[in-house]
Design a protein around this nucleic acid. Structure first.
Lengths: 141, 141
DNA sequence: GTAAGGCTTCCCATCATGGGAAGGTCAAGG
DNA sequence: CCTTGACCTTCCCATGATGGGAAGCCTTAC
């Protein structure tokens, strides 16, 4: 299997397969005489593992750790769960941040006429002018 | 006001002020004879505007547009609201993506013993092996 | 006058991914 | 046998927003 076939089989682009090799995540089984990378089923399996981990939001660094644990038969499930838990906390923190943004933006949008006139509470907020209806912005309850 | 003072007054790092200048977001009022950047209250106001927009998750490109609208007295509030609405939708899409990740991860973590044994449903999922308790992963209802 | 600290520009790194160029290789068809 | 098109190789560059750091000039306080 060359890189194009491995790409199709795994759903990972050839470009990314080469990059993952560069950072030490996965190596081809070998090379042909003409220097083409050769992959087998094992490598495709690893690529799918990486893809799935990425789709769950793990960084490549975390993915590397998970990959090593996967291949280490003497791992403990606790070590895997730790990584997952840390990642869940990170995701939840980021979700909370974005939800706070959405909340503020929705409030401002709600107050914005969205018409042909120039007066706009969204711009007022960005400009730091609190025009009467204070409650949003940095001033929480 | 030199760049350090403008940085303190606005909360934007000197590094970023120079970068924002490079990409055309803000220019200093002038330069001293010794080539130091000079800022006034107006520039600090712009920097605060940028900082607030960034804290609401707007990209620098969106921020630039908002900044131009702010400075354009003949703007319509509808044009501002459009940008905000698009941004809200984008945030909500990303939140939903991450929530889906969290949901899957929590399910897997819940099923993981987190003990000294090697068997781990998290790794099983990443490896693409669905061991009996199917319901999560790509297989939705 | 000198030392400390601030300013300038320039280059590099991050993280994960894609684009594209230049050149070698393989397979199919004439 | 040769061509053509599709594929492979490596190498460089770009993204977005931010920080780190070096080399050299300037200002301010002592």
């Amino acid at each position: 299997m060359n890189i194009g076939e491995a790409s199709t089989a795994s759903g990972v682009s050839a470009k990314m397969i080469r990059y993952y090799e560069e950072i030490g995540l996965i190596a081809p089984k070998g090379r042909t005489q003409s220097n083409y990378r050769i992959y087998g089923e094992d490598e495709v399996h690893v690529l799918r593992f990486i893809k799935r981990a990425r789709s769950l939001g793990f960084s490549l660094e975390e993915t590397e750790t998970l990959l090593k644990l996967w291949q280490d038969k003497s791992r403990t499930s606790a070590s895997v769960k730790d990584i997952a838990t840390t990642h869940i906390n990170d995701l939840e923190r980021r979700i909370a941040e974005m939800e706070s943004m959405v909340k503020t933006l929705k409030h401002l949008s709600h107050c914005c006429g969205g018409n042909n006139r120039p007066d706009c509470p969204i711009l007022d907020d960005l400009a730091g002018e609190q025009p009467a209806s204070g409650e949003h912005s940095a001033a929480g309850p």
